[in-house]
Amino acid sequence: MNSLTAIASILLAAILTNNMVLSKFLGICPFLGVSKKTNTAFSMSVAVILVMVVATAVTWPIYHLVLAPKYTYLETIVFILVIAAIVQLIEIVLKRYIKPVYNALGIYLPLITTNCAVLGITMLNITNELGFVESLFNALGAGVGFMLAMLLFSGVRERLETADIPEFMKGLPITLVAAALVSLSFLGFAGIGG
């Protein structure tokens, strides 16, 4: 029971209080670039969740069994290579065995290699000294949090399309200000689960 509450609080913190995009500023590029349409935002987020969890499942043992304690300085270079390899592998496996999923997510997968949210979460799991199971749930929560931010923001942006905006604020500036307001609302979660 105790471990259940611990996992619940990790999930809650990862989704709401420490939201990847809105409070940690990881994965801003897809957040701004791919959030124009809700369904695109959804597919992209599903791909991110998948890669985050698999990447954590692979990098955590590598760090703790191979790199620690002597070669921790190799963390950056090993992690990015492992993530790049995993993304390729997931792409190949999906293409071969689960075609419909590949058709839906395939185009987002190559992008995810250079998505800082994925590298970020694998590193945060190490710096925060989480255990293996905790790390997996933290990754899952971070992915779901990413999805939540993407979906909420794609809704906001659909409204922005029709809004009457002063000339100099059109485009990126108003999008960023809108992101500020969404992020402000997430500040309200501070204190929950923390």
């Binding site: 809105l22 604020m169 999008t175 500020a180």
Partner: peptide, 19 residues
């Protein structure tokens, strides 16, 4: 200093640079 401020200031800088 909080996350919303970051988005807001960046938005304003981009607006200024656009102008």
């Amino acid at each position: 200093l909080l996350p919303p401020g970051g988005f807001f200031v960046f938005g304003m800088l981009v607006a200024a640079s656009n102008a």
